[in-house]
């Protein structure tokens, strides 16, 4: 294990995770909203936003799938050391998955829940270059009329929304910024 794996956790776990969760909750409840999320410093190339989110939500009960661009580095060790989360190869078994959009495809590999337990679905953390408040038009719960967010694709998200109440939920991360796209959000190009 490299020393990079041992650093970059939360300074004060209970306060840092509380603050970070509140941001995650806020963006999930307001699809399209872009916010700052800080506290964690994962090894490169993972964004601090994605790293902070993992530190906040993962533990031994949450299998995590890391995209090839991330899994080959110190990130897997970092994640295991700070959260105890098992890093899994099987995409269907993952509760969280992190990577660039192209690496997450096909998203149909991930669990979308069952009719009786639609919550047993994966949450995908999509690493982006930047987050832009323009692009696709979003409608649905959490949005007063419409919101706008730059997305890496449209069809996959539309298809995912059509699965409701099943489906995946997404966080989008870039640097220290985060936005979210739950399965309820309807999209237009």
């Amino acid at each position: 294990m490299n020393t990079h794996s041992l650093t970059g956790g939360f300074e004060n776990a209970s306060h840092a995770s509380a603050n970070a969760f509140r941001v995650a909750l806020d963006v999930m409840a307001r699809p399209g909203k872009i916010a700052e999320i800080t506290g964690g410093t994962p090894p490169a190339p993972m964004s601090s936003a994605a790293g902070t989110l993992l530190l906040t939500l993962c533990d031994p009960a949450t299998p995590v799938w890391l995209a090839p661009s991330l899994s080959g580095s110190d990130i897997a060790d970092w994640l295991r050391f700070h959260t105890g989360a098992p890093v899994v190869e099987n995409r269907h078994a993952a509760m969280f998955a992190v990577g660039a959009w192209a690496e997450l495809l096909p998203i149909s590999d991930f669990a979308i829940g069952t009719p009786e337990y639609p919550d047993r679905s994966a949450t995908l953390i999509v690493e982006m270059e930047t987050l832009e408040p323009s692009g696709a038009i979003l409608r649905g719960p959490g949005i007063k009329s419409t919101a706008a967010l730059g997305l890496p694709a449209l069809t996959e998200f539309q298809n995912n929304a059509a699965l409701f109440p099943l489906g995946l939920d997404f966080f989008l991360t870039a640097g220290s910024q985060i936005a979210a796209l739950p399965r309820t959000t309807k999209l237009e190009g």
């Binding site: 776990a13 209970s14 306060h15 995770s17 509380a18 969760f21 995650a24 909750l25 999930m28 409840a29 906040t56 939500l57 993962c58 533990d59 009960a61 949450t62 509760m95 639609p118 919550d119 679905s121 949450t123 719960p141 959490g142 409701f164 109440p165 939920d169 739950p182 399965r183 309820t184």
Partner: peptide, 26 residues
């Protein structure tokens, strides 16, 4: 601990809350 619950319990509740928000009313 801050707000009484231990961190692992809070994480479990927080994950449930995020899914709850993503599936309103479920």
């Amino acid at each position: 601990n801050f707000a009484y619950l231990d961190e692992q319990t809070k994480r479990m509740i927080r994950r449930a809350l995020l899914k709850g928000v993503a599936i309103p009313g479920y």
